[in-house]
Write a protein that binds this DNA or RNA. Structure first.
Lengths: 238, 238
DNA sequence: CGGCGCGTTAACCGCCCTGTAACCTCATTC
DNA sequence: GAATGAGGTTACAGGGCGGTTAACGCGCCG
């Protein structure tokens, strides 16, 4: 699958150079030469990686980074800083702020490309199998087992469960789930999600004795979490 | 959990410098100043990360890297290359060979430390958590804990507390709180805020012994602040 | 063509969250 | 100390929200 990359860089020459090389490498390129609106751009594009210049004329790259890390949908996206600042403290700040890598200008384009591929390599390693709360989901064979027994899930049910299980304990809104499972450009009601949650629950939480795995968080959405104890803060019995 | 790090570096000065700094950072340090036996050392130590000099007198760091990647037990261990070679192709080879990062000498020790920590930072824990005064608010799971105990908040209560806690000590008017929590285009009384403040207080400040967390500032609004002592400037004046 | 499974929507129900009104308390002011 | 007003507290009605069921449409396959 072709990866989407967003570049935020005000220097026109470097922008063009990187655009050319990234597209030549087969990446889907989107870019902006201003910092303003960078986060909105990312929200629209949903990139797989963000290249971020720290020194921008109209805003601070570090702030943009913070904004991305605080955005529920974008927070997991790898960020590589590009910057002319070579001083030690600046490097540290960048890395500690949540950047995944840091390249100091001037740099070799091929090295940047290598570091980009590195991000994709390291993040794709996590196991093809998700296990939690007696549920075992195999991404390769698209099979789900419940305490050893094979479950029959439909494609949509599988994708929904896969997404929920990929970040246990994180609450997703119906909107987010629709985006992740049904795709960006859909035209369906968010109530559809409810029905799928219901079906997943019927299959996954067959035993009434079994603890609840998919949690409703009123006013927010749903989360997958095998808990020993009780309910979310938002709905725990009064 | 304390992380184990193995360093393979022939330069005695650099070896000592890194040993000192890594131990000071609380890592469990093991090292070798020769390349021979490096893989055996790793097999014995099972490090969480390997620092590897490329230019070694008795063997090639690149070969060691290959050996590690081909070892069933070690293949997943992150490797950071240390090297004096600054040429472009050398950098690329290093990264493409399976290194997770690459630091060119001379480097800042603090940057190396930062890059090491980066490797350990699991991609899933940018911890979207606010903590203050015994209250722990997790934006991801929408959970709130009070001295360890899970609290049951409603969606509106949660958003209000989240907003207040995001800027501790700042006083917000009811108008501001309505805009932030209820949205710009609402049509509700500002007294509603008072009721929610009350409900939050009942849940957060259960113990009468507990210090006040949400402060009323007469004529202005409310603020969240875990204070040891008393009152805002406006009240203290009296 | 007819049956089946999947995806989606509509509709109903019950719960509890929500927002407001009303009353009470306390501080400030003169 | 009375008047005033701001904030604390209580109770309640309405509806938003999520669970659940049923039905419809579509594509697939024999």
């Amino acid at each position: 699958m072709t990866k989407r990359i967003v570049l935020i860089e005000d220097d026109a020459d470097l922008f063009a150079l990187l655009k050319y090389n990234l597209e030549r490498e087969g990446f889907q390129f989107t870019g902006s030469q201003t910092g303003r609106g960078a986060i909105d751009l990312c929200r629209r594009v949903r990139p797989d990686l963000i290249l971020l210049d720290i020194m921008l004329p109209d805003s601070d790259g570090l702030d943009i980074c913070k904004g991305i890390r605080n955005d529920a949908e974008l927070s997991q996206t790898p960020i590589i800083f590009l910057t002319a600042r070579a001083s030690e403290t600046d490097r540290i700040v960048g890395l500690e702020l949540g950047a995944n890598d840091y390249v100091v200008k001037p740099f070799f384009v091929r090295e940047l490309i290598a570091r980009i591929k590195l991000q994709f390599r390291t993040q794709s390693t996590p196991s093809r199998v998700l296990k939690a709360g007696g549920v075992e989901l195999d991404r390769s064979s698209c099979q789900v087992k419940l305490s050893g027994e094979n479950l029959a899930l439909t494609a949509t049910e599988f994708r929904l469960l896969e997404f929920l299980m990929s970040r246990p304990g994180v609450v997703f809104s119906r909107e987010q789930l629709l985006n992740a499972v049904w795709g960006q450009d859909r035209a369906i009601t968010d109530r559809t999600v409810d029905v799928y949650i219901l079906r997943l629950r019927q299959k996954i939480e067959q035993d009434a004795s079994a603890p609840r795995l998919i949690h409703s968080v009123r006013g927010f959405g749903y989360s997958f979490e095998p808990r020993n104890q009780e309910a979310s803060a938002l709905q725990a019995a009064s």
